[in-house]
Every structure is written in structure tokens, then in C-alpha cells.
Design a binder for these strands. Structure first.
Length: 566
RNA sequence: GCGCCCGUAGCUCAACUGGACAGAGCAUCGGACUUCGGAUCCGAGGGUUGGGGGUUCAACUCCCUCCGGGCGCGCCA
């Protein structure tokens, strides 16, 4: 519901309550009531529960109180009707002129209208994906990447300054294992007998990296070559691959941060020192521990491993990393994590707070895992065992073939966003492949392409909208068309909720509804946009333009293209 | 065992964060244009929102409990 309308009605309601009290018709103090758009549009444009929340204090039935409020309500110019319904709702219906003015505003302002400015230039850091460079991106990473990027887009659109950030660990055991795996494949490539360690990486891409090393170095690395060489080669190659996949999805990062740099900058040591000063460090079993009990955590957590290397666990740099982000002065720090990280994040947050930082800027969006179904069976995925479907393969498989105006990422992006992040996502590959033309994304894009086509036809027929849109007579629009307009004009509120609650899935669901409204409207012969009556045609074409603008603006938030032709 | 998430139509999911009669898309069955794009539209069937209790004028939504599924409880990330 439009913000201005809501505020206006709230004011008028408060005035009515005041009058009723002055007249002795009500005795209790102003209640906390809400003004919202009813779920069912036939109930009106706005509704309040004021009478119902007053019922108890007044000792009267809600509908009787509603009558009192209505009797004292002096409607402003835009409110056409005030009625009482259901258990005691007071419903308001706006005059058509209100909607006409909103439509004109939408046409004039374009994206500024659809994207409410919430950020005021505040700085937000969105950390997402953050996959360690040990292999190609999998389908699970895809959900993270698309969610994170879309949250970034939502914030950009609504007036935040956004940094997209990728954090990775390159100091630990996993990277050593990666290096070792490359070395083994390298030796094998040279015909030298070598065995992958039990936890080694078995993927084909390791052989590719080893093969490249042979091409460039021959057998010079066969004896005594530093682990560093294999590690760097692997990291470089895998990152190139990850970047490429992200590029295909329309995703680019502004900042990469890694563990080794944090170590070199002494930030890890600083964390340990700070914690030690506060009595939060324990040392036993040869390791350095974060004490759980004083932080309200279930148990102690290792910060520095035992053994001669004195290696930090992943959690220590993560603490340092979050402090680093806080010190860089972001107003909002968003972490996109898989469900398996949630417990760990609590520990990290507790440590950061214990070190004296205000962690309120940090917000976490958790997403549940993606399960993949192929041939009716769940595919179990493991990076190490190389039994995964890569994100690249998925993009290839579900993207339409041939020449198109739209991006190969459209289907994948839309699918990943088409459910709430904290529910499991079941991705049936066969279905996505086979039914690609019936995917919801095509339904929405088709609505846009159809509208574009209408404008092409209108131009052919010499029908053009005036620059001064206010000259168009919107009183010619039918009730059905106004209903369509009302849903359309919801977009700014949908965007607001998506940003505030970090719930991007609202956008694709909204777009599906608008597209459905339009397809239904369009299919009725009586709703022909380009017709004999010039004035009516102009009013309808104008509305069509606003619909097109809303769909395009919504899709842009998702990183999904809005094709003019399909 | 403990913690977090989930359980809504045959399947995959929504439900404006406590509001009115729980809605879409697939799937099934039956229909619709000789002009703006049929990748569309119309209609039908399908529900005790996992079970039970509680709070509230009002519960899919909050609390308790039980059942079922996922994730975590690593000196992996």
C-alpha cells in the first residue's frame, strides 16, 4: 500500500478517535492500531483493526466501536468510501483520481518510483558466495551467489552504497590438500607413480591444472618443488573458473578478502591478544581455545590448532574478518550463509562482541540447502568425491538453445530466487531442462515481450502517447483496469519489504502475479488496447506502459532480463 | 541426546511478519481468438495448514508437547 495513503488514513483515524473521546463516546487511550492493505482487494484499498484492538478496553463489540469511529471520521479528499465489515474492520476505498495520480507519478518517475529510497547513501557490505577455491562452483553455491547478488541489487536500487565482497580461506589444511592433489596428478601426468591422499580432491579439474603445469614446466616440478607452486597454480586456475561462472550469472565482486592477508596484517594475532586480555582464552591439549562458558556458547572452540605449525582454525580469521568489516565503517554488514554455518556464526559474533564491537550492523541471511534431483533420484553432492553437478553445467542444461535476447542466467537466477531462503530448494534438473519453456520466468518475460509488441503495433498505427502524460484521460479506465493498476502500484512496498526483511523471493512472486493479471486482462477481446476510440486507446496504452515499466524494473532487481522480443 | 530450520492441495511453493473465505504454478480433466504475440486465457476437481493443547476479539503465523524430515553439535570450511 502506498506510504502517503497509509499515513493520511492514520492521521484521520487519530483525529476521529480524539473526537470520539471528547464526545465521551470512547473512554480508553489511543490504541496501537494498524492500517494495511487487505489481502482481498474487494475489501477496499486500506483497512484498520482499530475497533478490534479497542474492544477489550471499551467492553463493547468491535463492530459497535467501528460505528463510533466511522461516525467521527471526516474523510479527506481522496477517500471515497468508509465501510465496516467482517469482525470489525474499517475499510477505506480511495477515489479513482488517487490512483490516476499515482499512475502519472509512476510514468514520470520510472525506476525512481518503483524503488523507494531507503538507504540515504548508507554503506552496506554484502558478503556472499565466499567459496574456497578448491573446486568449481556447485549448485549449492549458486543459491548463495544469486541470493547475495540480488540482495546487493536491492540495496543499490534503494539508495544504498553497496560493496560486494568475497572472502576465502587460503591458509589452511584444505588448500594444502589441494596442492598435494595437484602434485600427485602432475606426477601421474609424467608417468610417475603417485597416489592421491585419502582426502584428496578427485575432480577432473585437478588433472587439467596438472596438465597445464606439465605443458608449462615439463618435469621440472617433479622433485622438490614447493607446495606453494602447486597451491598457487590451483588457486589461480580455480578462481578463474569461479569468476567465469559468476560472470555468466551477471555477478561481479568489488572486493576479495582472504585469510593469508589477514594473517600477514597481524589481525589474527590481535584477535587472540584481545581475547586473552579479556580472559576468554584457555590453553589445553596443545591448542588455544575460545572459552564458551563466559560467552554463553555451548562449548569451547579451538582458535589455534595444536602441532608445530600453530595454524589458526577458520574461525579465528573469521572473527578478525568481521572486525575488519566493522572497522571499515559499514552501516550494514550482510552475511549470506548456508544453514550449516549458523552455529559457527553465533560463536564468531559472540567473540566479536566480546572484543568490544557493536555487532548490530551485522545481519545474516541463512539459506537451506539445495537438493538436486535427476532421473527421480536425489544426487548426493561432495566436492571432494567429485559427485556434484557444477553450476556451469546447470546453467548450460536449463538455458534455452539458440539465439535469444535474454541471458542464459535468467532461468537459474529466477529459480534460485523463487522461494523463501530458509526453505529447502528442490531443483529437479530433468524438469528444468524439459519444461524450460513453461518456467515462471518465461511467463513473466513473455508478458514484457507482449507489451513491447503492443507498443510496436501502436507505433505502426500512429498511436503515440503525449509527453505530457497528464493530458491522457484516465477516467476512461474500467474497474478491471484500476484493479490492475492497484496491484501494480504495490511494487514499491514489495521492494521495501524485500529489502527490510532480506526477502528477495517476494519480487518474483509479485512479478508472477502482475504478469498473470496482465495476461488475463489482455486475453479478453473487449480489452483491446489499440482500437477505434483514440482517447480510450491512449489511456490503455498508457496503462500498458506502466505495467511494462513495473515488470522491467522488477526483473532488473533480480538480474533477469526483460526481453522486447522472445 | 542438545541446538537451529522446515512440515500448507497429488508435486513444487506463497500467504503483506497476528487479520476477513489459506492462494499460485505444475500435474489431471474439460473448454476458448479469423485483428495488438496461443510461451496466452477460461472452467472443474483437489485442504481438519503433520497431531494435540494453550495465548488472543482474531493463529499457517506466537507458546508448550508429540510425530516426521533437513542441518549442525570437528584441532573441516
Amino acid at each position: 500500500m502506498a506510504g502517503p495513503m497509509k499515513e493520511r488514513i492514520t492521521e484521520l483515524l487519530n483525529a476521529a478517535l480524539e473526537r470520539a473521546r471528547a464526545a465521551g463516546q470512547l473512554k480508553s487511550a489511543a490504541p496501537v492500531f494498524t492500517v494495511e492493505a487487505p489481502r482481498d482487494p474487494s475489501h477496499g484499498d486500506a483497512a484498520t483493526n482499530a475497533a478490534m484492538v479497542l474492544a477489550r478496553a471499551e467492553g463493547k463489540p468491535p463492530r459497535a466501536i467501528a460505528e463510533i469511529i466511522r461516525a467521527n471520521f471526516e474523510p479527506g479528499g481522496d477517500i471515497a468510501e468508509v465501510s465496516i465489515a467482517g469482525p470489525g474492520f474499517i475499510n477505506f476505498r480511495m477515489a479513482p483520481g488517487f490512483w490516476h495520480r499515482r499512475l502519472f507519478a509512476a510514468a514520470r518517475e520510472g525506476e525512481r518510483f518503483w524503488y523507494p529510497q531507503l538507504g540515504g547513501g548508507r554503506k552496506v557490505n554484502v558478503e556472499f558466495l565466499s567459496a574456497n577455491p578448491t573446486g568449481p562452483l556447485t549448485v549449492g553455491h549458486g543459491r548463495n551467489a544469486v541470493l547475495g547478488d540480488t540482495i546487493a541489487r536491492l540495496h543499490e536500487a534503494t539508495g544504498f552504497k553497496v560493496v560486494r565482497e568475497y572472502y576465502f580461506n587460503n591458509g589452511g589444511r584444505q588448500m594444502r590438500m589441494l596442492a598435494e592433489s595437484v602434485r600427485v596428478r602432475y606426477l601421474q601426468e609424467l608417468g610417475i607413480d603417485a597416489q592421491l591422499p585419502p582426502d584428496g580432491y578427485q575432480g577432473e579439474y585437478i588433472r587439467d591444472i596438472a596438465h597445464q603445469l606439465v605443458l608449462r614446466n615439463g618435469d621440472r616440478l617433479a622433485q622438490g618443488a614447493a607446495e606453494e607452486i602447486f597451491k598457487n597454480a590451483a588457486e589461480r586456475a580455480i578462481f578463474a573458473d569461479i569468476r567465469n561462472t559468476c560472470e555468466r550469472l551477471g555477478i561481479r565482486f568489488d572486493v576479495y578478502t582472504n585469510e593469508l592477508d589477514l594473517i600477514k596484517a597481524g589481525k589474527i594475532d590481535a584477535v587472540i591478544e584481545g581475547l586473552r586480555k579479556r580472559g576468554l582464552i584457555a590453553e589445553y591439549d596443545g591448542a588455544v581455545w575460545l572459552r564458551g562458558e563466559p560467552l554463553g556458547l555451548p562449548k569451547d572452540r579451538v582458535l589455534i590448532r595444536s602441532g608445530p605449525e600453530r595454524e589458526p582454525t577458520y574461525r579465528t580469521p573469521d572473527i578478525a574478518y568481521h572486525i575488519d568489516k566493522l572497522e571499515r565503517g559499514f552501516d550494514l554488514i550482510i552475511d549470506v550463509f548456508g544453514a550449516d554455518h549458523i552455529a559457527e556464526h553465533e560463536g564468531v559474533a559472540a567473540a566479536v562482541r566480546a572484543l568490544g564491537y557493536d555487532i548490530s550492523p551485522i545481519r545474516v541471511i541463512i539459506y537451506q540447502f539445495v537438493t538436486l534431483t535427476r532421473g527421480g533420484e536425489k544426487v548426493k553432492m561432495s566436492t571432494r568425491k567429485a559427485t556434484y553437478v557444477t553450476l556451469d553445467e546447470l546453467i548450460d542444461e536449463v538455458s534455452p538453445q539458440g539465439e535469444h535476447e535474454w541471458s542464459p542466467a535468467d532461468v537459474v537466477r529466477f529459480f534460485f530466487l523463487f522461494r523463501k531462503s530458509d526453505t529447502h530448494l528442490d531443483f529437479d534438473i530433468d524438469l528444468a531442462k524439459r519444461q524450460a519453456p513453461e518456467n515462471p520466468v518465461f511467463y513473466v518475460q513473455y508478458a514484457h515481450a507482449r507489451l513491447a509488441s503492443v507498443f510496436r503495433e501502436a507505433a505502426k498505427a500512429g498511436l503515440v502517447l503525449p509527453d505530457e502524460v497528464e493530458r491522457i484521460d484516465l477516467t476512461l479506465l474500467s474497474e478491471e483496469e484500476l484493479a490492475l493498476a492497484r496491484r501494480l502500484l504495490d511494487l514499491p512496498e514489495v521492494v521495501r519489504t524485500s529489502v527490510e526483511e532480506l526477502e528477495p523471493h517476494r519480487i518474483p512472486f509479485y512479478l508472477l502475479e502482475v504478469a498473470g493479471d496482465f495476461h488475463r486482462y489482455y486475453n479478453k477481446p473487449s480489452n483491446r488496447i489499440i482500437g477505434q476510440d483514440q482517447e480510450l486507446s491512449r489511456a490503455r496504452l498508457f496503462l500498458a506502459g506502466v505495467i511494462k515499466s513495473a515488470i522491467a524494473s522488477g526483473l532488473r532487481l533480480l538480474g533477469v532480463s526483460a526481453p522486447e522480443r522472445m
